[in-house]
Simulated assay, not measured.
Amino acid sequence: MDLDLLARSGLRFDLTDLADGRRATITLDRPDKLNAQSPDMWDALRGIGEALPDDVRVVVVRGAGRAFSAGLDRKYFTTGEVDGRPGIGSLGAMPEEEADEIIACFQEGFAWLRDPARVTIAAVHGHAIGAGFQLALACDVRIVADDVQFCMAEPRLGLVPDLGGTFPLVHTVGYARAVEICLSGRRVGAEEAVAIGLALRAVPAAELEKATDELVESLAGGPRAAARETLGLLAACTEGRDPAAAFAAERKAQIRLLRAMAGNT
């Protein structure tokens, strides 16, 4: 992990012990900017994913201050460079292959959060706008404070959600509702988020940290191997696996676990 990059990215990374393994907590720590995101932050997220110890069972993503994340830092809405990075307008002036490669690197900062090697939880409060919404969607589970406001702002700005947010949104709330949320650009509050399956549960803002800790304990309490296999099965089902393929995958996973129990690996 590049510690210099982590320091300037506006992220904090902490490891704490669990009964069986460890918990990683990633905190977006730019409270004065409502945790607005940047390419450095996405690079740091990718670096965390690449360097994550094998014994991490749960990853929690949270925001410091009044919001989870208000989206991309507005200073990148430019045709020039910002801190040596291309602004949004600069990407459009590049050759297509170069722009594609840059955006693909940005997406990698979010994509690893869907790796079934561990469960990921977004603890979301306040604004989760654009890139903030997509970061929350990248996690397996979302628990929200009662002041949460989700918004997919990109289409109203002439853009698309390009950090991997479209796939999990459709599979979480359904195609028609995803269309309406994205194209209207409206805010989705806590009560609605729970009702449509976008959030697991909503709690008072003052209780979000405690509720997140309790969720970590409940999800990381069983055998690690069984948890990984189950996450893999469930994740594959969201990607369109047909019932016969799901049945076959369950058999293979179960046999792997049984063989391990019998010492026949």
Rank of each mutant, 00 (worst) to 15 (best):
I88S: 02
G197C: 04
L28V: 11
A122L: 13
I88G: 04
P31S: 03
E229C: 06
A51H: 08
E50M: 09
A220H: 01
L135V: 13
M152W: 09
V170G: 03
R256M: 08
L215G: 00
P86K: 04
L163M: 12
M152T: 05
R224G: 05
Y175D: 13
L137T: 03
A226L: 14
A138Y: 04
E217V: 11
M261S: 11
R22G: 03
E101P: 00
E50P: 05
A236Q: 09
L72P: 04
V56R: 05
L234S: 01
A70D: 14
I48K: 01
E50Q: 11
A67C: 15
S38F: 07
L159F: 10
A244P: 01
D115Y: 05
D40Y: 09
L258G: 00
C151A: 15
Q254G: 14
A220F: 04
A145V: 08
E108N: 06
A253G: 07
T25G: 00
L183T: 07
P86T: 13
G49I: 14
R251K: 10
I48H: 03
R142E: 13
V144P: 06
D54S: 12
L135A: 13
G92A: 13
D140R: 01
S9C: 10
F247C: 11
V148F: 08
A19D: 15
F68N: 02
H171Y: 11
E97L: 13
R46T: 14
L34D: 10
E214Q: 11
A51T: 15
L231G: 05
L137K: 00
D242G: 06
R228V: 15
A225V: 10
A190F: 10
R241S: 12
C105D: 15
K210N: 10
K210A: 15
G132K: 00
